[in-house]
Design a protein around this nucleic acid. Structure first.
Length: 570
RNA sequence: GAUCUGGUAGCUCAGUUGGUAGAGCAUCUCCCUUUUAAGGAGAGGGUCCAGGGUUCGAGCCCCUGCCAGAUCACCA
């Protein structure tokens, strides 16, 4: 980046950097700084006169002549620092205060403070600086929101595009954003604790897969050069985790980054995080109880309460949750009983009841459409929807009481699915038939149905998998609910965005600039109006062209007594 | 994918029938030794997202594009 692209403030800070070096002060010193206190512990355990070493970013600096108040922000919060000329410079030489601190330290710089804890006249716990050390110079000014006595934020850094693209700046100036991510990590920790205490085993499975299975979604495709084979990025980790149950683990789980090459909106990011857990010798009834206990536990760990506010709703994650079969749910909201209905009958009902359908939809998909259209959005408090049609659950065991259904549940919160679980299908012959059924659906045009049969997975099942129940939870969605964020971008550090275009490097001339320069360079210098006529450009093109050339430093306009003269600058 | 809204100083935002680009904070200079978003005085700072068009003249009107957000559609 050339200096021409820098703002005034950025240029000033670069000059400041040089002045520091001229004074023998290294703005990016190598040595560690022996921090021994954080802002919160100083404030929580006030001890007058206590000697402390703190470090952080200077976020406020209010100078008042021979003294001033600054604010240092560390990982836990902010603390005020009192800078007094005669404390920092006890001898004759006051340059460390007058020249370095007052003139060469900027907002955003990292500094270390050696000083004593005290309370100011208005009672704020502060550190009286005896010595300060520049630890890292900031060359770019941060946004500068300020909170007043009533808690109202002025000049808030709110532009979502800037916040997501420059999350580092967002995190520095918006403590409430940092809080969301602290809660996110608390959620992971709580889940791990819950599983580990029960003896379940955290594992890792491949992200690059020869067949992207375990879900119906469009994968990202890539290529491995050495093997010369196509590979897909995982859309789910289900089939790998079940292989591990075959291998003899009785409880395995994984937090899995999944990748789906589909649309993006405020609830979908191309990469997202799911947690899947599989437990041997269990069924989906057991899993419902397990899930509600898990969610109650994590809600408490994250927020200190089982209640969570989401928009206009207050959701309570306290167990147990209501259980409704899909058939009953559809009856509840439409008075229509799907029991025993054929594909044609379902399709006809959909058409006369405002549910969009097309010819590619099988029986299961039709029922799913009805549920999605008429029922799903109505469940605000955590509710299990159980017993899904067989056609839409190719990896799930057939219901013990009804061969057209499966032992599956989804957990709905605020009209959205946040968990999905089965009594896992472990009959290898049935599994093979279901895969083949999916193939037929795919050929029929259902782009959600899998086009591949994972023969290795079937081979694993043929060795025998114990009865197993599996659960998947959409972690990002759960974080959204627990932190009251309607947008997935707010719960991901780095949500996917179109790449930013950086500094278009001049001297790429526009067409108008080229035309003018071509004519002018033959003559060396020309009368402005003659040049304008010769260029034959529209007024706007002429205006932009001649101004642009001036800015690039390629031409110079000089005023003579009766005309304007344009010259090429060599 | 559709529709709507937006893109102006480092940040948050104004900008009147289309007529010399503004404010607050930040920055710079000077004064100020316990302040609580904002002490006083002065100064500087702009590719008005990009490219075309209309016009004597465009931040503003028209067209195209880029980026973002919201709503809807789609969505294990």
């Amino acid at each position: 980046m050339s200096t021409i692209d820098l703002s005034e403030q950025e240029i000033q800070r670069r000059e400041t950097l040089q002045k520091l070096r001229d004074l023998g002060i290294e703005p990016y010193p190598a040595a560690l700084y022996p921090v021994d206190h954080k802002s919160t512990e100083i404030k929580e355990n006030f001890e007058d006169g206590k000697k402390v070493l703190i470090a952080g970013r200077l976020m406020r600096n209010k100078l008042q002549g021979k003294a001033g108040f600054g604010q240092i922000q560390d990982s836990e919060g902010k603390i005020q620092v009192y800078f007094n000329r005669d404390e920092i410079c006890p001898g004759e030489d006051k340059s460390m205060y007058n020249d370095v601190f007052k003139k060469l330290i900027d907002l955003g710089d990292f500094i270390g403070i050696e000083g004593e804890v005290f309370k100011t006249q208005v009672g704020e716990i502060s550190v009286k600086a005896k010595k300060f050390t520049l630890l890292s110079k900031a060359l770019k000014p941060l946004p500068l929101p300020k909170t007043d006595a009533e808690g109202k934020v002025h000049d808030a850094f709110t532009n979502p595009e800037l916040r997501y693209r420059q999350r580092y700046a967002d995190l520095v100036v918006n403590p409430q954003v940092k809080e969301v991510f602290i809660k996110r990590t608390k959620l992971f920790n709580a889940m791990r604790q819950f599983f580990n205490e029960k003896g379940y085993f955290e594992v890792e499975t491949p992200i690059l897969q020869p067949i992207a299975g375990g879900a119906a979604a469009r994968p990202f495709k890539t290529h491995h050069n050495a093997l010369d084979v196509p590979l897909y990025m995982r859309i789910a980790n289900e089939l790998y985790l079940k292989r591990l149950i075959v291998g003899g683990f009785e409880g395995v789980y994984e937090f899995s980054k999944n990748f789906r090459n589909e649309g993006m909106d405020r609830t979908h990011n191309p990469e997202f995080t799911a947690m899947e857990i599989y437990v041997a010798y269990k069924d989906y009834n057991w899993m419902m109880e397990f899930t509600e206990n898990l969610l109650e536990f994590v809600a408490l760990a994250v927020n200190g309460t089982t209640k969570a506010t989401f928009g206009e709703h207050e959701v309570d994650f306290k167990a147990p949750y209501k259980r409704v079969t899909m058939r009953q749910s559809i009856i509840d909201f439409t008075d229509f009983d799907i029991q025993g209905k054929s594909e044609a009958e379902l399709s006809a009902w959909c058409k006369s009841n405002g549910v969009d359908v097309d010819e590619t939809m099988g029986r299961g998909k039709l029922i799913d459409e009805i549920f999605g259209e008429k029922c799903e959005g109505n469940y605000v408090q955590p509710t299990y929807i159980t017993d899904y049609p067989k056609e839409m659950s190719p990896l799930c065991k057939v219901h013990r009481d009804d061969p057209t259904l499966t032992e599956r549940f989804e957990l709905m919160v605020c009209g959205k699915e946040i968990a999905n679980a089965y009594s896992e299908l472990n009959d290898p012959i049935d599994q093979r038939e279901r895969f083949e059924e999916q193939l037929k659906l795919a050929e029929r045009g259902d782009d959600e149905a899998s086009e591949f049969i994972d023969h290795d997975f079937l081979r694993a099942l043929e060795y025998g998998m114990p009865p197993t129940s599996g659960l998947g939870i959409g972690i990002d969605r759960l974080v959204m609910f627990l932190t009251n964020n309607p947008s997935i971008q707010e719960v991901l550090f780095f949500p996917q965005m179109k790449p930013e275009v950086f500094g278009k490097q001049g001297p790429d001339l526009t067409d108008s600039e080229k035309v003018i320069l071509d004519i002018l360079s033959k003559e060396g210098s020309m009368d402005l109006n003659v040049l304008k006529t010769a260029a034959g450009l529209s007024n706007k093109q002429w205006d932009k062209g001649i101004k642009g050339l001036g800015k690039h430093g390629l031409t110079k306009v000089t005023k003579t007594d009766d005309s304007l003269l344009v010259e090429v600058v060599s």
